[in-house]
Simulated assay, not measured.
Amino acid sequence: MAFENPSREHIKELLASAQNIAVVGLSDNPDRTSHMVAAAMQSRGYRIIPVNPNASTILGETCYPSLSDIPEPVDIVNVFRRADQVVPIAQEAVDIKAKVFWLQLDIVNEEAARIATDAGLEAIMDRCIKVEDAILNPRNN
């Protein structure tokens, strides 16, 4: 059976209940998409936990070299890596008992999604978390 993202209503619920978002592949370069998306999510009240082995802090938060190094619970693992690199990240998301495994826009890997869903995580692929949150949880500024 082909992968299907959760319904928009369910994605809305997942975002509304999330607090900590670990961003794998978060760049410390403000011109990179990962940085812009994470900064936007942070400004909307989410706690961003950077996962980048080459930086010490990003967006004022301590960076961790891998998901397994994060010392607190993670609700969403948001991934900015190439599709051919995400299978081990899916397994690590399972290992840390994250609730959601989210592959950003243009990232699709059926095996990674299957690893996540088989372990009880919600899997979302080829969707931008910032766009989904803005559409599903509009806020007045």
Rank of each mutant, 00 (worst) to 15 (best):
K99A: 04
A90V: 09
N109W: 10
P73D: 14
Q104P: 09
T117V: 10
R32F: 00
A40Y: 11
D28M: 10
M125L: 08
D106E: 14
D75R: 10
V86W: 05
L67C: 08
E132N: 03
S27T: 06
P88S: 03
A134P: 09
N137V: 07
G45D: 11
D75Q: 13
S56K: 14
A83P: 02
D106L: 13
N78D: 15
I70C: 09
L15E: 07
R81H: 04
P50K: 07
S66M: 04
L59P: 08
I21F: 07
Y64Q: 03
T117G: 07
N29Q: 09
S7M: 11
T62I: 15
Q104W: 04
S68R: 13
R44W: 04
L103R: 01
E13W: 11
L15H: 00
V23C: 04
I89S: 00
R114V: 12
S66V: 03
K130Y: 13
Y46S: 10
A90R: 00
P88D: 07
C128L: 08
R47M: 06
A16Y: 06
N20G: 03
N52C: 06
V77K: 02
N29E: 09
D84N: 14
T57G: 00
E122W: 15
P138D: 05
R32G: 02
A116D: 05
N20L: 02
V108A: 07
I124D: 08
S43T: 09
L103M: 11
Q42S: 15
I11Q: 09
E72T: 06
V86H: 03
D95V: 00
A38H: 04
E72F: 14
S68V: 08
T57D: 08
D126W: 00
E122P: 12
I124W: 03
T62Q: 15
L67I: 00
A119Q: 02
D31W: 05
N29C: 05
A113V: 11
D84P: 12
Q104T: 05
S27I: 05
E13S: 11
R127I: 02
I70K: 08
G60F: 06
A38Y: 06
F101I: 10
T57N: 01
H10W: 14
I70N: 06
P30W: 00
V100T: 04
V87H: 02
G60N: 06
S34Y: 01
N137K: 13
A39M: 12
R47N: 13
N137L: 14
I107G: 01
L103E: 00
R82G: 13
L136V: 00
L59Q: 02
V77Q: 03
I11K: 02
W102E: 02
M36S: 11
R47P: 02
A112W: 03
A112E: 03
H35M: 09
A40D: 15
L15M: 03
R47K: 14
R81S: 07
K12S: 11
D118P: 01
R81T: 07
R139Y: 13
L136D: 01
D28Y: 09
I135D: 15
S68C: 12
L103V: 00
V86N: 01
V131M: 12
G25T: 01
S56V: 11
A38G: 10
I58Y: 01
A39L: 11
A83G: 03
Y46L: 13
N5L: 08
L105M: 12
V74P: 05
I49R: 02
M36R: 15
L59K: 05
D133H: 10
E111T: 12
